[in-house]
Simulated scan of single mutants.
Amino acid sequence: MSAPDQKVERSNGVSWRLVVGIVLLAAVLVLVLQNTKETTFELFWMSVSAPLWILVVASLVLGFLIGWLLRSRRSKRRANV
């Protein structure tokens, strides 16, 4: 067994994260391509009419940014311990 502070050598195989990422990207592309109809959505006092895929992509980008911000905050907090 290796100690927790030692790096484990990576095999030349495909990473499971890469496979999951590709599958999720394909699912997002299918979702976007199948939802092209015009829709109206409201945010606070604004009412916007746009294709649904724009809302889907905007939600994904916002989710990614929130996850990235929280992850960086968590890493900084762990570094201070």
Rank of each mutant, 00 (worst) to 15 (best):
L29N: 05
K37Y: 14
A79F: 00
L18D: 03
R73G: 14
A27H: 00
A3L: 07
N35T: 10
T36Y: 05
Q34L: 07
L33Q: 09
R71P: 10
G21Q: 08
S49W: 02
E42D: 12
N80K: 10
K37F: 13
E38V: 15
R71K: 13
E42F: 03
R17W: 02
T36N: 11
V14Q: 13
L43T: 11
S72K: 10
G21S: 09
T36G: 13
W16A: 15
R77Y: 10
T36C: 12
E38Y: 14
P51V: 00
S59K: 05
G67D: 05
L60Y: 00
V32F: 03
V48N: 04
M1S: 01
T36I: 14
F64E: 04
V61C: 06
A58F: 15
V30G: 06
K7I: 13
V48Q: 04
L43C: 08
S47P: 05
I66T: 11
L31T: 02
L60H: 04
K37C: 07
E9Q: 14
Q34S: 04
V14T: 12
V81A: 12
W68M: 13
V61Q: 00
W45I: 09
R71M: 14
L33T: 04
D5N: 10
S72D: 01
L65N: 09
L52P: 07
V57L: 01
F44V: 09
L70H: 10
P4R: 06
K7F: 00
N35L: 01
N80T: 12
T40R: 07
G21N: 01
R10K: 07
F64P: 05
R74W: 03
L70I: 12
K76F: 08
F64R: 06
F44L: 07
V30N: 01
S2I: 15
V8L: 05
L62C: 09
E9F: 10
Q6W: 10
N12I: 08
G63T: 08
F64L: 15
Q6A: 04
V14F: 01
V61E: 03
M1D: 02
W45L: 11
G63K: 04
G13W: 04
V19C: 08
R17P: 00
S15V: 00
V56E: 00
S11F: 01
N12F: 01
V20H: 02
I54R: 07
A26Y: 00
I66L: 01
S75H: 15
M46V: 08
T39D: 02
E9R: 10
L33F: 11
V81I: 11
V56M: 02
F41R: 01
G13R: 03
V32N: 05
W45F: 10
S75N: 13
L55Y: 13
N80V: 12
L65T: 07
N80I: 11
V14K: 15
L18T: 09
E38W: 14
I54V: 15
W45H: 04
G67K: 12
A58W: 06
V8P: 01
L25M: 03
V19D: 04
E38D: 11
S75A: 14
V57H: 07
R10W: 06
G67S: 05
V19A: 14
V61H: 02
V19F: 03
R77L: 06
L62H: 06
L69F: 06
S59N: 02
L24W: 02
L70K: 14
W53Y: 12
L55P: 07
L29H: 00
Q6I: 08
E42Y: 09
V23G: 03
V30K: 03
V8C: 05
R17K: 10
A3Y: 08
F41W: 08
S59C: 09
